[in-house]
Write a protein that binds this DNA or RNA. Structure first.
Lengths: 238, 238
DNA sequence: CGCTCCCTTTGACACAGATCAATGGCCCAA
DNA sequence: TTGGGCCATTGATCTGTGTCAAAGGGAGCG
């Protein structure tokens, strides 16, 4: 189940038919790719950048329920008009298709349909992993998990096996967005980020820069199998 | 996007081909329908009963990441061998298919494949709704949400539109399982259940019986748009 | 080059929910 | 019908994370 670009999962001929109905688009940070847009007329593949999927309630509470990276698909054919909002968290390059043209194409290329199905199953798995995080991990574990997850996805397509994690990268999310992804507040995010630094797992540069100093430690912190306070003990300071 | 039995989403002919490769099975409460079983050889449709999908970590923490009811599908073709465990929370009747036979059938019936795809999208939506609950709702809202969700699914196929919620039913989950579904402890579940009773939203009989006295109130408690403590004020007691 | 503005960090305190510890009562088996 | 085990309830206390408030510092703009 290698996670590669949709195009590479698809037959050559389908790819050729796809090209003429697609068009390229640039999106600035913060722009909402409206649910209406996606729901009604358009589907897209991310060429570069990161998109957050947000679920909101009228009272203003919100939760990021998914992050999509380069080569991921945005919007679903036969879409359930769910209350999801998609928004660019970094500058974005999209490759867009009209829904109707795409669905017509689908009918002629079962392999494309199957690729979408597998992708949906993968998203489902990711979502359930995240449910465990939200329900059963503490703040430190949540933050460490997010960093591991981002660092394995941020460069290239490989989807987070092994030690493929980037050791240096820019966060595609602000502190506020991190909080919204983890079900925390911005203050707690800040504090636990500091704890990860004290523990020697990471270091930061500026607002977005992250260096993973000890990938193994970070991974263990993410799963909580650490003698805990030892790793974050004051010793490090001296 | 009506949620009906898989069989009814499928052409007559496909259903006819499905029948001979299926076999019926009864499962007692608590039995694990091992990930291995499902992952390797079998797929199933639930005829009656409720199944919980559990994600666990070595340290013993666990989180219920999905509930499947009558007419739901268990196991995925082309399955990702995720660390999921499926377990019967009530006595179960399953209609089982061998994976290979089913996948062969799939190849000849695109409509079946599409039905599975839509189902996966629906599950994804459900999972994301649950992510919001886990990340952003408080204990009372979580419990009210779960009760609404169960009461709309427990009888028949209709998937939770409108006021189709059952006003009287038996919980398919123990207190412990409820806690594991909501990311809470059993004690908090017990206390908030009492609060819902005091608020006049529900009443309970025995360990499993639930009566929804005020569906509207329960719904509003689930979304937190209630002047809060008013609804659970001590007045009710006098 | 320096000045804002806004994002982020840090601190003090409050509170929802976890933890620890009994007690209660449903449900099954004999 | 009765006994007993286990699930659930209730209470007391503790703690992780939220809330409120203020100070610090990147990054873009003039």
């Amino acid at each position: 189940m290698r996670e590669t670009g949709l195009c590479s999962e698809v037959s050559e001929t389908a790819a050729k038919e796809l090209a003429p109905i697609s068009h390229h688009r640039r999106i600035p940070v913060g722009q909402v790719i409206q649910s209406e847009h996606l729901g009604l007329g358009w589907l897209a593949i991310i060429v570069s950048g990161v998109v957050k999927l947000v679920k909101a309630q009228k009272d203003g509470r919100l939760q990021i329920v998914g992050l999509q990276y380069a080569s991921d698909f945005i919007g679903h054919p036969y879409a359930s008009k769910s209350s999801l909002t998609a928004e660019a968290t970094t500058p974005l390059e999209l490759c867009c298709f009209s829904r109707t043209a795409f669905e017509k194409l689908l009918r002629n290329h079962p392999s494309l349909e199957q690729a979408l199905y597998r992708r949906a199953l993968h998203d489902l798995d990711t979502a359930r992993e995240w449910m465990f995080l939200l329900g059963r991990k503490n703040a430190r574990e949540k933050l460490a998990s997010l960093l591991v997850s981002i660092s394995t996805r941020i460069n290239g397509q490989p989807s987070g096996d092994a030690d493929t994690l980037a050791l240096q990268f820019n966060l595609p999310l602000s502190r506020n967005e991190i909080a919204d992804a983890l079900g925390l507040t911005i203050e707690t995010v800040s504090r636990e980020l500091r704890n990860l630094k004290i523990a020697g797992a990471i270091s930061t540069t500026g607002r977005r820069g992250i260096s993973v100093l000890n990938p193994d430690l970070l991974q263990r912190l993410a799963e909580g199998d650490i003698d805990d306070t030892l790793a974050v003990s004051p010793l490090t300071g001296l």
